[in-house]
Amino acid sequence: MNAHRVDCVGALVYDDQRRLLVVRRANEPSRGLWSLPGGRVEPGEDDPTAVAREVAEETGLVVEVGALVGEVEREGPKGQLYVIRDYEALAVSGELKAGDDASDAKFVSRDEFDNLPTATLLASTLAQWNALPG
């Protein structure tokens, strides 16, 4: 049986010290773990629109969406397959505050990132993409 594909996006947002924007997930999957801001692509949205919307909803930041960094697949509940495309994004305005399905949001250094409970395979995937915080 083929898994039901669910298109998702994520954002790699860095500040001027190359700290990475992460959110603590308030809902499943990975509730309580830290991950990149992102979520499902809604009907009628292209990826950049979805990235900008998700970042704004979860962190309060307005971003300009850049290049695709990479794509991963993660098994979800009920036979779903999350296909997640992560994009570079630059925060251009807004005030950092957790919202929507994020219980916290912050920029983290490499040391801080290494000590956070992060979503499955996040650290290894970012390492493969040379996208870990500075």
Rank of each mutant, 00 (worst) to 15 (best):
W34R: 11
W34K: 10
S35Q: 09
S35A: 14
L36G: 08
L36H: 08
L36W: 11
P37K: 07
G38W: 09
R40K: 06
V41N: 01
V41I: 14
P43T: 11
G44Y: 09
G44C: 08
G44A: 08
G44Q: 08
E45R: 08
E45G: 06
D46G: 02
D46M: 02
P48H: 08
P48V: 09
T49K: 08
T49H: 07
A50M: 06
A50P: 01
V51G: 04
V51S: 06
V51A: 05
A52R: 10
A52D: 04
V55G: 00
E57G: 02
E57V: 00
E57I: 01
E58V: 04
E58L: 09
E58T: 02
L61R: 07
V62A: 12
V62P: 00
V63K: 03
E64P: 00
V65W: 05
V65N: 02
G66L: 07
A67E: 12
A67D: 09
A67K: 07
A67Y: 03
L68I: 02
L68G: 00
L68S: 01
L68F: 01
V69N: 07
V72D: 10
V72K: 06
E73Y: 09
E73N: 11
R74Y: 07
R74H: 10
E75M: 10
G76M: 10
G76K: 07
P77M: 09
K78D: 15
G79K: 06
Q80A: 06
Q80E: 11
L81S: 03
V83A: 10
V83E: 10
I84F: 04
Y87Q: 01
Y87A: 01
Y87T: 02
E88F: 04
E88W: 06
A89F: 02
S93F: 03
G94Y: 00
G94D: 01
G94W: 00
L96Q: 02
L96R: 00
K97V: 03
D100E: 07
D101S: 11
A102W: 00
S103R: 15
D104V: 14
A105D: 13
K106S: 13
K106H: 13
V108K: 12
V108D: 12
R110G: 11
R110Y: 15
D111C: 11
D111I: 14
D111P: 10
E112K: 05
E112N: 10
E112F: 10
F113D: 14
D114N: 15
D114K: 11
D114L: 15
N115I: 05
L116D: 05
P117K: 13
T118H: 11
A119G: 14
A119C: 14
A119T: 15
A119L: 12
T120Q: 14
L121T: 11
L122W: 13
L122D: 13
L122K: 13
L122C: 12
L122T: 12
